[in-house]
Design a protein around this nucleic acid. Structure first.
Lengths: 128, 128
DNA sequence: GTTGACCTTCCTGTTGCGGGAACCTTTATG
DNA sequence: CATAAAGGTTCCCGCAACAGGAAGGTCAAC
């Protein structure tokens, strides 16, 4: 199966699939003409990558997850740790964004938003 | 005032300050020896940038905010719109992260996290 | 005069691809 | 059968917002 069909099936752009190959994540076979040739195993891996990335894991995390996926003797604890660390990072980001949101929405509420120059948002940013 | 002192005062790394100059955000004077020389106006702008970035505005947004800051005839509505758009974007990111968080935490909860290979997280990612 | 702490510019690397050029193959069509 | 369109390939640049580090100039102190 060529790359555009693999792309259609796994939902990843061809560019992304080539990139994953470049960094050694999935190495498909090649046909005599040099075209990439994706088999069932490749397609499963691509789908796995698509969903892992969809959960926000970094590509390097995905590399780790993929090797755990292929390791029949893996410890589920290793997977769980990866996921928990990611969860912690997500929580950190959410907290950070909520902090920004609080401050920003207060400022927005205070601003008249009309044609006049007076602006509490600018005043806050410019506070001496 | 040289760059390291400016950095200490505004709280931005010297690297960042130089970068802001490179992209035309703040253009300090130069001494005879070629060293950058920051005056009060420059320092105010740097502080303004530091706080704007701290609220998560993109550097290009900061450029716009800075020009509104310097525009005595600005309409506060322009500032408010920028801030509201940013707020919308923040909300979008929060929602996205919360979605990930939901799915991920469910999976984590289902996983035993022991030495055995069975793992609902992997199973979900590998779902055929 | 020499050391050490500054400063300068310039180049590379980061993350995860997207866009596009230049070129080759295969397939479809007149 | 010639050709054009639609694939494939590699390779290189660009994005955001800097950080790290090399190579070299400058300045103050001892």
């Amino acid at each position: 199966m060529n790359i555009s069909e693999a792309s259609r099936i796994c939902g990843l752009p061809a560019k992304t699939i080539r990139y994953y190959e470049e960094i050694g994540l999935i190495m498909p076979g090649r046909l005599a003409n040099g075209y990439r040739d994706y088999g069932d195993t490749d397609l499963h891996k691509l789908g796995f990558l698509q969903r892992s990335r969809g959960l926000g894991f970094s590509v390097e995390d995905c590399r780790m997850l993929l090797s755990l996926y292929e390791d029949r003797n893996r410890a589920s604890g290793d997977v769980k740790k990866l996921a928990q660390d990611h969860l912690t990072e997500i929580d950190r980001k959410i907290a950070e964004l909520k902090g920004l949101r609080r401050t920003l929405s207060q400022l927005v509420d205070q601003c008249q938003g009309d044609d006049r120059p007076h602006c509490p948002i600018i005043d806050d940013l410019a506070r001496q």
